[in-house]
């Protein structure tokens, strides 16, 4: 049953991406991307990853959408007609996809317990957590303790990105009569 729900949700995701690629109205594209992210969060719940699902629902379909809408407010919402033929990118995408699909025939089947991924270090964490960390949520234990340096690195990346956005969107005061001055408060809101 869970495999069936999983397949239905994945099909819906693929359909929303097809619509997203074809659309030219960027507002519709951003809203569709939000829908897509929410479908992804649902798939993650089915795949036993509630922590990731919550983060994806909040960050992917929430904060990302707000950032995209803010950027659309400051730019244009209609995509221009393409001047180049999409045949070459299409060819590249199809070839890459075919090569990857060929590769999946050597991958272990979905949902099996005896795959290399599920028999090494990841599988040991649920057994070790009660004795060593003593909290019920294994994902939190791994995130904050066993792989705490990963989280430190993540904080560093977010900090760097925040500095980058601040520097990019800083108002340039040297130029007198800059027409974009009024957009200041909106741009200042982007760095959250």
């Amino acid at each position: 049953m869970e495999a069936f729900i999983n397949m239905v949700l994945l099909t819906m995701m693929a359909a929303s991406v097809v619509a997203l690629v074809r659309m030219r109205n960027l507002f519709a594209v951003v809203i569709l991307f939000s829908v897509y992210s929410f479908l992804m969060a649902s798939v993650l719940v089915v795949l036993d990853a509630p922590d990731v699902a919550m983060t994806e629902a909040a960050v992917g379909s929430g904060v990302s959408t707000v950032l995209f809408l803010a950027a659309l407010y400051l730019t244009k919402t209609e995509e221009a007609q393409p001047r180049h033929s999409p045949l070459l990118p299409m060819f590249v995408a199809v070839v890459v996809g075919a090569a990857l699909v060929y590769g999946t025939y050597d991958m272990p089947p979905f949902g099996a317990a005896d795959t290399p991924v599920n028999t090494h270090v990841g599988a040991q964490y649920p057994g070790r957590t009660p004795a060593e960390i003593d909290i019920p949520n294994v994902v939190s234990a791994v995130l904050a303790s066993y792989r705490g340096f990963d989280t430190l690195g993540e904080v560093l990346v977010v900090f760097t990105a925040a500095i980058g956005v601040l520097l990019l969107l800083r108002r340039n005061k040297r130029r007198p009569g800059d027409a974009s001055e009024e957009a200041g408060p909106d741009r200042a809101g982007m760095e959250d």
Binding site: A49, D51, V52, T55, E56, V59, G60, V63, S64, L67, V117, V121, G122, Y125, P126, V138, V139, V142, L143, R147, D150, T151, G153, E154, V157, V158, T160, A161, A162
Partner: peptide, 16 residues
């Protein structure tokens, strides 16, 4: 649980 942790990090880095 290990892929979940890695992807939690990836989501936040993606937002950045």
């Amino acid at each position: 649980p290990l892929p979940h942790v890695l992807i939690l990090t990836a989501i936040v880095v993606g937002l950045a």
